[in-house]
């Protein structure tokens, strides 16, 4: 009788410990799951480098405004501006923007920019074909550089989007 109970308890404990493990793994799995969810829904505005060459037909009937926003993280001694705040373009067209970045500090700086697109649900339609944001950049003391970004907006972008915001934030990653 007693050993019977012990067996039952052991079984319960084993099952529950398994549940604990599953939930812990679930928490870890939330990271990739969230990334997938973000890719679908655009929650955090992250865009990715497109590997393939995109061949859209340019929709000349439609014009959208693309806004280029720049930010820097706290303690990042860079001056960082898009050469133009915004421009109008047709969906499907390759949109180029040059950014001017200056290292205002007197140290050599490693820095990386992260993109963010808003509104979120439109993120999937903004294709980043060229961006300095996917690699760490090195800025010599006082160096000024002009860096280029190319994006293409998928013509399938739902009609009610008239304005897209492409944001870049530079962070000093010097160790």
């Amino acid at each position: 009788m007693a050993s019977d109970l012990e067996q039952k308890n052991k079984k319960t404990v084993r099952a529950l410990l398994l549940l604990v493990l599953v939930m812990f793994l679930f928490a870890v799995a939330l990271i990739p799951l969230y990334d997938i969810l973000c890719e679908i829904t655009g929650i955090n505005g992250k865009t990715r480098q497109e590997s393939s060459i995109l061949n859209y037909t340019i929709d000349t009937q439609r014009e959208i405004t693309i806004e280029f926003i720049t930010s820097i993280g706290a303690g990042t001694g860079l001056e960082f501006k898009a050469d133009k705040y915004q421009l109008k373009a047709h969906p499907g067209e390759v949109i180029k923007m040059t950014y001017t970045v200056r290292n205002k500090t007197n140290k050599r700086m490693f820095a990386k920019a992260n993109p963010s697109v808003t509104p979120g649900p439109a993120v999937g339609y903004v294709k980043n074909t060229k961006c300095f944001c996917f690699a760490t950049q090195v800025f010599e003391v006082g160096e000024t550089r002009h860096l280029e970004v190319q994006i293409v907006v998928d013509p399938a972008l739902p009609a009610h989007y008239k304005r897209l915001t492409f944001g870049l934030t530079f962070y000093d990653t010097t160790k």
């Binding site: 529950l16 549940l19 604990v20 493990l21 939930m23 812990f24 679930f26 928490a27 939330l30």
Partner: peptide, 8 residues
């Protein structure tokens, strides 16, 4: 049991 491992 379901939430504590997630918090951890």
């Amino acid at each position: 049991i379901a939430i504590m491992p997630v918090f951890a």
